Computed example of a mutant assay.
Amino acid sequence: MQPTEQITVKQFGIILFSFVASTIILTIPGLMAMYAMQDAWLSVIPSTLTGLLSIWVMVILSRRYPGLTIIQYSQKILGKWLGTCLGLYYIYFWYMSLSIMTIQHTFFIKALLLPRSPSIVGSLTLLILCGLAVYLGIEVIGRATEFLTPMKLIFLIPLLILTIGAVDPEQLKPILGNGIVPVLQGAILPGGAFMNQLFILGWLLPYLNQPKKALKVSLFALLAIFIFIFIVVISAIMVLGSLTGQLNYSYLSVMQYIGIEGSFERLEAIAVMIWVIGSFSKVSVSLFILCISISQIFRIQNYRDLVAPVTLLGLIGSVWVFKNGAELQTYLTLIYPSAGFVTQSLIPLLLLMIDTMKRKVNPSLL
């Protein structure tokens, strides 16, 4: 059954792009460079394969179960009890993701703009705004993202152009000086983990008004993400060199360096704007997915009844999940890559394999 709320193909593609690329542009160069060092720009290429895997799996499953989310067709594939257990796990996963995205936003704002403000203030303001968007529906989230993302790019693209004057191509040498293994580590661990986020297709595809264009627009969004992140990572390395892997917000340092060397000052204000817009997109979509998942598992007719309590729980989780930025950085570097791979890639792939085997055994399911 197709949901009554729908988003256009354009909105769908922009949501995918914004969800993956919006905030990691400031963090992904450093995370990749921790493993691949000067070859981190090469890691972007194989990391895209994980995004392709997520798109392929989710699009096939959505075609087999049109109008259903992964929460719903998991019960058809695994049976009621196992499917419900998987759904509960995904609720836990999205609750943790919501809490982590919120506190990550708060830590960034505190570090750069409001160091004396209590953490709960930054988390509360973001969650209230995102909660209102979710209550109004996925159509409003789609329209807001469609408006805000181009605005973000209007400010970011000139910065990328200004970066050209500060780059040093010698910083990329020696290419593959440490072999291919560090490149693959940078791709599979931080890079692949973030590309895996395209598994949000499992919840958003039922709301696409032209399902037949799902694969095309998803691949186009992935290509845009690849180009965008590739430019950001390679420019960060050519400006910062070996310092890239030592900085939590490496591209922010690039912006600050441009502001010092050039005729512009305080360019980190643009970084704050980009971050806030990106955080709104990610947290809104995550909160929407969490509310939808809970409503489908517990048979609640209207997910909007859950927005207020889930938003409050997200606020509590953001305060509880990490005490400081060091714990967050450890999670993003060591824990999230493996947890993200299992949750976002391996489990959906297993669902597809099980469903395929069931259809071969019982052709009537075709």
Rank of each mutant, 00 (worst) to 15 (best):
R359K: 09
Y207W: 05
L98E: 01
S117D: 15
F322G: 04
F107L: 07
S43T: 08
S279K: 14
L136F: 14
A187P: 01
E261Q: 10
P211L: 13
G192C: 03
L26P: 15
A269F: 09
G122Q: 05
V254E: 07
L198Q: 07
I180R: 09
K10I: 10
A269R: 04
P46K: 12
V57L: 00
W275P: 00
L222V: 03
L26T: 02
I91E: 03
Y65Q: 02
L240I: 02
F199Y: 05
N248A: 07
F199K: 01
M151V: 03
S97G: 06
G245N: 10
R63I: 02
G186V: 05
S119V: 11
T330Y: 09
V272G: 13
V276P: 08
I55D: 01
Y336K: 04
G245T: 02
L189R: 14
M273E: 15
L332M: 14
V59S: 01
I24P: 00
D355R: 02
E268H: 08
P169L: 04
M37A: 14
P29D: 08
Q246C: 08
L349N: 06
I141Y: 02
L61F: 01
G314R: 06
L184A: 15
P66R: 07
I161A: 10
R359Q: 14
K212M: 04
N302T: 02
V183Y: 09
Y95Q: 07
V181T: 05
Q11C: 13
V283R: 15
Q329L: 03
M353L: 12
